[in-house]
Write a protein that binds this DNA or RNA. Structure first.
Lengths: 212, 212
DNA sequence: ATCGTTGTTGACGTCAGAGTGTAGTACTGC
DNA sequence: GCAGTACTACACTCTGACGTCAACAACGAT
C-alpha cells in the first residue's frame, strides 16, 4: 500500500529521506488525523519501518508538528510573507498552496483544526481571515451579532471552498479565486441584507450573474 | 469538572441514567472526537465511574454509536420525517436541531464526519442536501465542474453556517434560516456567474441586498 | 425495619501502540 | 582495497486505555 516506492529502495540521503517521511506522514495523517494514525501506518506508507522514523524525529508529536510546520510554511509562502498581511488576493495563495499539497491542506484545516493541541496553528490563519473580514463586514452589517456570524463563517467558507475545489478536480485555477471571493461576498451579503428581503435558492435569471 | 451534578447524586432510574450518560458523552466526544476521548473522561463528565458505562453500553464504540444515533434521530425529527425529503425549508430544522443540542450537532458534523468508521451517518444528511442542491444547481450552472463544486460546497456551507450561528450566540432564529439560505444562494451564484464578471468582497451599496 | 434490587466502586487482566536497544549492510574517503 | 560512517531492520520493553470482576452502599416494597 506504500504509495511512494514499489521496490525496496535503500540508502536515501538524510534530507531526502526526511522529506519522503514528511510527505508520507502527510498522506497518512490526512486520512484519519493524529490519534487514529499509528507510526506503523506511517512507516508502511513511507516504505520503511517504525525505527527509522525515530532516527529523523524525536516522537510522534514531533513528527506531526514537523508535518504541520511544513504545510504552514508552504501556506505562508503562497499566501504572503508577513503575518497580518492577509487580503482578498490571498485567496489565490490559498488555492496555490492547496494545489501544491492537497493532503497537507486537508490535514491542516480538517484534522489539525479539531485537535486541541494543534489547533493554534490553523487558528493563526483563521484569525487573519477573520480579522480582515470583520473589518469589512462591520462596515456593511449593522447588527453586530450577524457581523460576528459572517466573520466566523467567511474564513470557513474560504477554506471549504478551496477543499471543494480540490474535490471537483481543480477546474480552471484562474477563475477559482474569483468564484470563491464571490461566494464569500454572498455570505457577507446574506449577513448584510435587511430583514425584509426574501431570497430564492435559485436565482430568477439563471446565469445573469448580477451584483452580489 | 462534571457539568451535570455538583453533589454525589446516586440511584437514578435506569433510563434517566442512560440519558445522562448519553448527554455527558455527547459533551465529552464533542471536544476531541472518538479516538482522543477516553472512557474515563466520559465517566468523569457524567460524575460516575467507568464501570457504570459498561452497565449501560456494550463498548466504547457502542456508546459512541448510541450518541450519534440519538443526534441523528433528533436531527431527523427536526428536519423531516422521511429520508430524501430535504428541501430548502429543512434549514429551519437544522437550526432547531442545532439549538436543541449544540454539542451533538458539532460532534456529528465536525468529528464524526472525519472518522471513517462513522462517516456514513453524516454522509446521509450531506448527500441529501447535495442531491437537492445539485438538481437546482445543474439548471443554472453550465460548467459541470463548477456545478459539482457548488454541490459539494452548499451542504458544507449550510452546516458551517449553522455552527457559526451557534458561535455567534444564536441571534434571532426567525431570520437565521433566511440568511443561511441567502448565503447558500450566494455560493450558487458564485458558481453560476459568467467568467467575465468581477466581484468586490464588499458590496458596492451596503445593505442594498440586491438579487443574489 | 428489613430484604432484595440496583447502582456504585477500586483493583485487575489484556492488548494495541509508542518508544528503544543490538545487529547488519551499503555508501564514502584514504 | 579498507575502514569509518550512517542508514536500515528485527526483537524487545513499557505505558496507557479498553474492558472485567468481586465487594459495598443506597433506595423501594412489604
Amino acid at each position: 500500500m506504500a504509495t511512494s516506492v514499489p521496490e525496496p529502495v535503500r540508502r536515501l540521503p538524510r534530507a531526502q529521506r526526511r522529506e519522503q517521511i514528511l510527505a508520507a506522514a502527510t498522506q497518512a495523517f490526512a486520512r484519519a488525523g493524529f490519534a487514529s494514525t499509528s507510526l506503523d501506518d506511517i512507516a508502511v506508507e513511507a516504505g520503511i519501518t517504525k525505527v527509522i522514523l525515530y532516527r529523523h524525529f524525536e516522537s510522534k508529536t514531533d513528527l506531526y508538528q514537523a508535518v504541520l510546520d511544513r504545510v504552514c510554511a508552504l501556506l505562508a509562502t503562497h499566501v504572503g510573507q508577513q503575518v497580518g498581511e492577509f487580503t482578498e488576493a490571498s485567496i489565490d495563495g490559498l488555492l496555490a498552496a492547496a494545489a501544491a499539497e492537497p493532503a497537507g491542506f486537508r490535514l491542516l484545516f480538517q484534522h489539525a483544526a479539531r485537535e486541541p493541541e494543534f489547533r493554534a496553528l490553523t487558528d493563526r490563519f483563521r484569525t487573519e481571515i477573520h480579522d480582515i473580514a470583520h473589518v469589512q463586514i462591520k462596515a456593511v452589517v449593522a447588527d453586530s451579532a450577524w457581523a460576528q456570524w459572517a466573520s466566523h463563517l467567511a474564513p470557513t467558507v474560504a477554506i471549504e471552498a478551496v477543499i471543494a475545489w480540490l474535490d471537483a478536480g481543480q477546474p480552471d485555477p484562474a477563475q477559482a479565486a474569483d468564484r470563491i471571493r464571490a461566494a464569500i461576498g454572498g455570505v457577507i451579503a446574506a449577513a448584510a441584507r435587511s430583514t425584509m428581503d426574501h431570497i430564492t435558492l435559485v436565482p430568477d435569471r439563471p446565469g445573469s450573474g448580477g451584483p452580489v
